[in-house]
């Protein structure tokens, strides 16, 4: 938190290298968050980049009453809704996601010593998880991703999403129910996991 405030103050004073430090600190985390929201690597990178630019432009609005990363998440959620509006279809619901093959290639390159079956299985799991996330509404997905992958408290999520704690709990509840339904269909890879 102290580190965030120092960086923001430097940026507000016109030290642009502070923006580079902010990006170095949060680039990966923001990318993964964006990826969970849009379900596609290229779009996640574009979204993360857009968030950083938006943050730079409106840094004077950051009051320091939350962590910088949660402020970035808030921007990302708002921008991702714009993304959805712009698009004629929602990539997560697509039967064949655009970056299907990059996922496989990447897994192959990062897991050189691993069994190819395992690589394919991982890719299959990832595809199923993305599809399951795609079955959620924007709000359900945002709440779920913030809770499950970013490990934020319910009251933090409610602040980011400008909702009450009760509404966030309802969103999470509905999200789990939908995910359970979606994932029950894809049992094969997960059975292997559980065994």
């Amino acid at each position: 938190m102290q580190e965030d405030i120092k960086l923001v103050n430097r940026l507000k004073e016109g030290d642009e290298s502070a923006m580079e430090d902010i990006m170095n600190l949060y680039r990966k985390k923001l990318y993964y968050f964006a990826y969970d929201l849009v379900g596609n690597r290229e779009e996640a990178e574009d979204l993360a980049q857009e968030v950083f630019f938006k943050a730079y432009k409106s840094i004077h609005n950051f009051r320091g009453d939350s962590q910088l990363l949660t402020w970035l998440f808030r921007i990302a959620i708002n921008r991702s809704i714009d993304y959805k509006r712009k698009k004629s279809h929602w990539i997560l619901k697509n039967s064949e996601p655009v970056d299907e093959y990059p996922v496989i290639h990447q897994l192959e390159s990062s897991l050189n010593n691993v069994n190819p079956d395992k690589v394919l299985e991982d890719a299959e799991i990832e595809r199923n998880v993305r599809k399951a996330l795609g079955s959620l509404t924007s709000k359900e997905r945002s709440a779920f991703v913030l809770k499950h992958y970013q490990d934020l408290k319910i009251n933090e999520i409610s602040k980011i999403m400008s909702l009450s704690d009760g509404t966030v709990k309802s969103l999470l509840h509905r999200a789990i129910q939908k995910l359970r339904k979606e994932l029950s269909f894809y049992n094969v890879p997960f059975c292997t996991e559980e065994n």
Binding site: R27, K28, Y31, Y32, Y35, D36, R41, A44, E45, A48, Q49, D99, P102, V103, Q106, L107, S110, D122, I125, E126, V129, A132, H148, I176, L179, R180, L183, F190, E193
Partner: peptide, 17 residues
């Protein structure tokens, strides 16, 4: 369900990014 959602490997960001 939550355990299933955890067992995933998201693609790394590209080196260009």
């Amino acid at each position: 369900t939550l355990k299933k959602m955890e067992t995933r490997k998201r693609p790394e960001p590209s080196s260009a990014f």
